[in-house]
Amino acid sequence: MWDAVLARFEKQAPASVMAGLADVRLYNALGIPIAASVLYPSTGWLLSPLIGSLP
């Protein structure tokens, strides 16, 4: 029984990890520039660095 559970987990884990990495890349691509005030002159968006560092 555990072999079937582990086999299913082995197939699902890499997809889950890759989805998480995609989310992190998107978060970093948006959150870090906003927190660093890079977008402030063009958009008026300003974010506290504390919020930009949250996971």
Rank of each mutant, 00 (worst) to 15 (best):
M1V: 10
W2F: 12
D3Q: 13
A4P: 02
A4S: 15
V5K: 09
V5T: 08
V5G: 03
V5S: 02
L6W: 13
L6M: 13
A7W: 04
A7E: 13
R8V: 09
R8K: 10
R8Q: 14
E10R: 14
K11I: 04
K11L: 04
Q12G: 00
Q12K: 03
A13N: 06
P14C: 06
A15H: 05
A15V: 07
S16R: 07
S16I: 12
S16C: 12
V17D: 06
V17F: 15
V17L: 14
V17N: 10
V17C: 08
M18E: 12
M18S: 10
M18T: 09
M18K: 15
M18G: 00
A19V: 09
A19F: 04
G20V: 10
G20C: 06
G20L: 03
G20K: 03
G20T: 07
G20Y: 05
L21K: 14
L21I: 09
L21Y: 04
A22T: 15
A22I: 15
A22N: 08
D23R: 12
D23I: 11
V24P: 00
V24N: 02
V24T: 03
R25K: 12
R25C: 10
R25Y: 09
R25S: 14
R25G: 15
R25N: 02
R25M: 15
L26V: 12
Y27D: 11
Y27S: 06
N28G: 11
N28W: 11
N28Y: 12
N28S: 14
N28Q: 15
N28L: 13
N28R: 13
A29E: 05
A29S: 10
L30C: 12
L30E: 02
L30D: 01
L30S: 04
L30V: 14
G31I: 06
G31P: 01
I32R: 09
I32A: 07
I32N: 01
P33N: 02
P33A: 03
P33Q: 04
P33G: 02
I34T: 04
I34P: 00
I34A: 14
A35H: 03
A35S: 14
A35C: 10
A36M: 13
A36N: 15
S37T: 07
S37D: 14
V38Q: 01
V38S: 00
V38M: 03
V38F: 00
V38D: 00
V38R: 00
V38A: 02
L39A: 05
L39H: 00
L39P: 00
L39K: 00
Y40C: 01
Y40F: 11
Y40M: 08
P41I: 04
P41C: 10
P41K: 03
P41R: 02
P41E: 09
S42Q: 13
S42E: 09
T43P: 00
T43F: 01
G44T: 02
W45P: 00
L46N: 12
L46M: 11
L47G: 09
L47A: 13
L47W: 08
L47H: 08
P49L: 13
P49D: 05
P49Y: 06
P49H: 07
P49N: 07
P49E: 03
P49S: 09
P49M: 07
L50F: 15
L50V: 14
L50K: 14
I51S: 07
G52Q: 04
L54D: 05
L54Y: 07
L54E: 13
L54H: 04
P55R: 05
